[in-house]
Design a protein around this nucleic acid. Structure first.
Length: 454
DNA sequence: GACCCGCGCAA
DNA sequence: TTGCGCG
DNA sequence: GGTC
C-alpha cells in the first residue's frame, strides 16, 4: 500500500479561513476535473460553502471563461443573479497570495446584449495589474515598472543598453525560475508559496528523486512529470518501461530501482560532486573514477577549473538559501550602480557575469548572474533566462518547426546552410518587443515568468 | 540509427 | 574543434 | 528512454 503520509483526507474546514462566508457555485465547463477537485477542496477547507446549483444562497459564481459561463447558465438566470461572478483565476491568485485579492480584475461582466461579455478593458487591466494597485504587497517598487516605460526613455537615446538583469541563482528558491527580475510580472507573484496539491505524490515524489539521480548521472533525457496515472497511460512518451515503473509504485508504494540508486555509493558520490558549481555529470564521474569520494578529497585535485575551485571553496555558502527580501535589496543596489555606470550608452551587445557576490557587510558568498541586453532584444533575453532548459528547448524547437531560429538575442528566419550565427548580421531579427509577442508569434501559450519551470 | 538548446569557456 | 557545464 |  501507499505510504500513510499521503493523507488525502483534507483537514477539517476552517470557519475563519480566508473564504469564510462565501457560498460558491462552480461552473465545471472547461475545467479539468482534477483542477476542480483541488479548488473545491481548498474552498471548503478555508471556510467557503460549495453549492451544487445556482441557488439564492450563492454569493459567488466561478467560471474559467465567459464562454464556459454562458454555455452553462442561461442568460436571464444569470441576469437575476445578484452575487459576484468571477474567474477561477481569482481563486488561484488568492491562494497564492494567502489572502483574498481584489476581485476587480477577475469580474466576469454580465452584458445582457453583448456576445463577448468579457470586459475588454479587463484584459488590459489584467495585463497591467502589476504596475498599479495590484502591487500593494510588493514592498520593492521597481525602477522600471513596465516595458513601455523603458521604451519611452530609450527612444531618445537609441542604442543604449539597459542593465536590467540581476538574477539570483535558482538554488535560492527552487520553485521559482532564476529570473531577470525587472520583469514586472514577477513583482506580483514573487511571494507565492502555493502550488496546487499534487494528487499523485506517491508517484511524483519517487520519480522526482529518480530524475535527479539521472540528471546527476548525465542522463538528462528522461525528464517527465506525471500529472495522473490515467492520463499518463496512453500518452506519447510513455512506453512499457514507464508503465512498469508506475505500476510498481501504484501497487507497492515504492520503486526498487530508486532504492538501489539511493544506497549506491557511486551514485551518491557523483550526485554530491555534481552539486558543486561548475561540476557536471562528466566531471563528477571523472573525479569518482580518480578515486575521490568526499568534497575534501577534491580539494587536492589539481585538474579543477577556476569555477570548480570556487564552487568547492564556497560550497556551503552557495547552498545557503537567500531570503527573498535580500535578493530584492540587492537588485536595487545593483540597479543604482548600473545606472551610474552605464549612462555612457556603450553598445557592446550582450554582456554577462556569472559569479559570486556578498550581501553588504557580510562574508557569505552567493551565486549571482548579470546579463546586460540592448533594449531591442530585451524580451528575448528575458525569455531565455527566465525559462528553464525544458522550456527553452521547446520554444527553440517550435521556432525551428516554423522556419526560424530562436536564441536569447532574437528570432531569425532560418538560414539554411551552416547553422547561422547568433544575432547573425544579414538575416534581420523579427521585431518583437515583448515576451507576449514572442510567445504569440510562436503559438505557445503564454506563461508568466514564475510558470516557466516546466 | 540519428536525434533530443545553444552559448562561453577551457583544453 | 571538442567536451563540458550552464541557464 | 522514446520518437521519427
Amino acid at each position: 500500500m501507499a505510504p500513510k503520509r499521503t493523507k488525502r483526507k483534507s483537514p477539517s474546514p476552517d470557519p475563519q479561513g480566508m473564504f469564510a462566508g462565501m457560498t460558491v457555485f462552480l461552473i465545471e465547463d472547461g475545467v479539468q476535473s482534477l483542477r476542480l477537485q483541488i479548488w473545491k477542496q481548498k474552498l471548503v477547507q478555508m471556510g467557503a460553502k460549495v453549492e451544487t446549483q445556482l441557488s439564492e444562497k450563492v454569493s459567488h459564481v466561478f467560471a474559467i471563461s465567459s464562454d464556459a459561463l454562458f454555455h452553462h447558465v442561461d442568460d436571464d438566470r444569470l441576469a437575476r443573479f445578484k452575487g459576484h461572478v468571477l474567474l477561477y483565476q481569482w481563486l488561484e491568485e488568492s491562494l497564492a497570495a494567502g489572502e483574498k485579492v481584489s476581485e476587480d480584475f477577475y469580474i466576469l461582466k454580465v452584458d445582457p446584449e453583448g456576445f463577448d461579455i468579457f470586459d475588454k478593458s479587463l484584459k488590459a487591466k489584467l495585463a497591467n495589474r502589476n504596475s498599479s494597485s495590484y502591487d500593494e504587497h510588493s514592498h520593492c517598487k521597481r525602477i522600471k515598472s513596465s516595458h513601455e516605460e523603458i521604451k519611452q526613455t530609450n527612444e531618445e537615446k537609441k542604442g543604449d543598453i539597459e542593465t536590467n538583469s540581476v538574477s539570483w541563482a535558482s538554488n535560492t528558491e527552487p520553485h521559482f525560475p532564476s529570473s531577470l527580475t525587472n520583469s514586472p510580472e514577477i513583482s506580483s507573484t514573487q511571494d507565492k508559496d502555493y502550488s496546487p496539491p499534487d494528487l499523485n505524490k506517491g508517484i511524483t515524489e519517487i520519480f522526482g528523486k529518480l530524475v535527479n539521480i539521472y540528471r546527476a548521472l548525465g542522463d538528462d533525457r528522461r525528464s517527465f512529470k506525471v500529472e495522473s496515472a490515467d492520463q499518463v497511460k496512453d500518452l506519447p512518451g510513455i512506453g512499457k518501461s514507464m508503465q512498469d515503473h508506475i505500476q510498481e509504485i501504484v501497487t507497492t508504494g515504492k520503486l526498487s530501482k530508486l532504492e538501489q540508486f539511493e544506497t549506491d555509493e557511486k551514485v551518491k558520490t557523483i550526485t554530491l560532486f555534481g552539486e558543486v558549481w561548475g561540476i557536471g555529470p562528466a566531471t563528477a564521474l571523472k573525479l569518482y573514477e580518480k578515486g575521490h569520494r568526499t568534497l575534501d578529497d577534491l580539494k587536492n585535485e589539481d585538474s579543477l577549473t577556476n569555477a570548480q575551485v570556487i564552487g568547492l571553496k564556497y560550497f556551503d555558502d552557495i547552498k545557503t538559501r537567500i531570503p527573498r527580501h535580500e535578493a530584492q535589496e540587492m537588485e536595487l543596489v545593483l540597479q543604482k550602480v548600473a545606472e551610474d555606470i552605464i549612462p555612457g550608452g556603450t553598445d557592446s551587445g550582450v554582456d554577462t557575469y556569472f559569479g559570486l557576490c556578498t550581501y553588504p557587510g557580510r562574508e557569505l558568498r552567493h551565486r549571482i548572474d548579470f546579463k546586460v541586453y540592448p533594449r531591442d532584444i530585451y524580451a528575448f533575453g528575458l525569455i531565455a533566462w527566465t525559462g528553464n532548459d525544458v522550456l527553452n528547448r521547446r520554444l527553440r524547437l517550435l521556432a525551428e518547426s516554423k522556419g526560424y531560429r530562436l536564441d536569447d538575442t532574437g528570432l531569425f528566419p532560418a538560414t539554411h546552410g551552416s547553422g547561422g550565427k547568433r544575432g547573425s548580421r544579414g538575416t534581420a531579427s523579427l521585431k518583437l518587443e515583448t515576451e507576449k509577442e514572442v510567445f504569440d508569434f510562436l503559438g505557445f501559450p503564454w506563461l508568466e515568468p514564475y510558470e516557466r519551470n516546466l
